[in-house]
């Protein structure tokens, strides 16, 4: 297992290097002058050139890249041109905010989708199955920006139950977390439910389950002890992938509710050609993607002992 994890770390470092080079290249080729964004549209050509020179932008591409790489490896992520502070000062708090939103979303969404998926898959074609399937398909089909509008119209403007934005200006407020989490749950739970349902339905048709039922075991025991563990392999993969999706897929929700998270940060960094911030965000995204995949692979061996690292 140590070899497996070591290989994954090696793969992750390689991916980070490739992604960082590609990003540097892409930002180099994208039109737009970073000095204009820092000094404002009315700055003079002379001022912009002075700024570019002072910040090393006249150095060749590869020298700037290796400078950044060396600094990054030593924990110095550079300064953000948009936020005018070191990247780490803005990156970690924003990442923590998205993690809080993600935990709140997953804490509700995973139990809900697993329960509904199992209930639907237990008796394929039943009324329960059809009802859950329809609800799942409908909620997943509505994009976040649309459900955010509907939910805000009802809970904020009509019933006046919840705050309409989630800036957390005066510190963490769990009430402000409800709307963005609700939108993410509504959008995502249907997908995981459908995957769980399909996996459960497949397991329920296998011979060993039929044997257990015919042997006279209580139905609940058949489901809980024999079917569930095998049925969870596919949803487990999907759930792990949702962590990746959440990291950047929350952009719409964070923008709509003015939630100061990682997705909104990535958007602002991109719009402002904030190269060091974009690079840092991308590295975090790669790290999370590889880490979740590694955890998923290790998790398979627990759920299905037949799977080996070799």
């Amino acid at each position: 297992m140590l070899i497996f994890v070591g290989k994954r770390i090696g793969f992750m470092i390689l991916t980070m290097v490739v992604v960082s080079i590609l990003l540097f290249l892409l930002l180099e080729l994208t039109p737009g002058n970073v000095a204009t964004k820092v000094l404002g549209p009315y700055s003079s050509e002379e001022q912009r050139n002075l700024w570019l020179e002072a910040h090393g932008y006249f150095e060749p591409f590869y020298i700037r890249y290796f400078d950044w790489l060396g600094n990054f490896a030593s924990g110095n992520f550079g300064d953000s041109v948009r936020f005018k502070v070191p990247v780490s000062e803005v990156l970690w708090p924003r990442l923590a905010n998205t993690a809080i939103l993600g935990i709140a979303t997953f804490a509700v969404m995973i139990p809900l989708s697993l329960i509904l998926g199992v209930l639907a898959g237990m008796r394929e074609g039943s009324k329960t199955d059809r009802s859950i399937s329809i609800v799942s398909i409908v909620t997943t089909s509505i994009p976040e920006f649309a459900s955010a509008v509907f939910i805000t119209a009802i809970l904020v403007f009509w019933l006046k139950l919840l705050p309409g934005t989630s800036t957390m200006t005066y510190g963490f407020d769990i009430v402000q977390l409800i709307l963005p989490a609700m939108v993410l749950i509504i959008y995502d739970f249907g997908y995981v439910t459908r995957m769980t349902r399909a996996s459960m339905a497949e397991v329920m048709t296998t011979q060993y389950i039929r044997t257990a039922v015919l042997k006279g075991l209580p139905y609940r025991r058949v489901v809980m002890r024999h079917a569930l563990r095998n049925a969870l392999i596919a949803p487990f993969t999907v759930i792990m992938l949702q962590i990746n999706w959440l990291l950047s897929g929350v952009i719409v929700v964070e923008f709509f509710f003015a939630y100061k998270g990682f997705g909104a940060l990535l958007l602002e960094a991109s719009l402002n050609k904030d190269i060091y911030l974009i690079e840092a965000c991308a590295m975090v995204a790669v790290l999370v993607a590889v880490a979740t995949q590694t955890i998923a692979d290790i998790g398979y061996t627990y759920l299905n002992p037949r799977i080996r690292f070799s």
Binding site: V149, T152, V156, F157, K160, L162, P163, G164, T165, T167, T169, F255, F256, F257, A258, A264
Partner: peptide
Amino acid sequence: IDHGDDPAAQVAALAS
């Protein structure tokens, strides 16, 4: 308080 570039967020903040 910065509510970003979405005018709807400002209105939601005022309404609530």
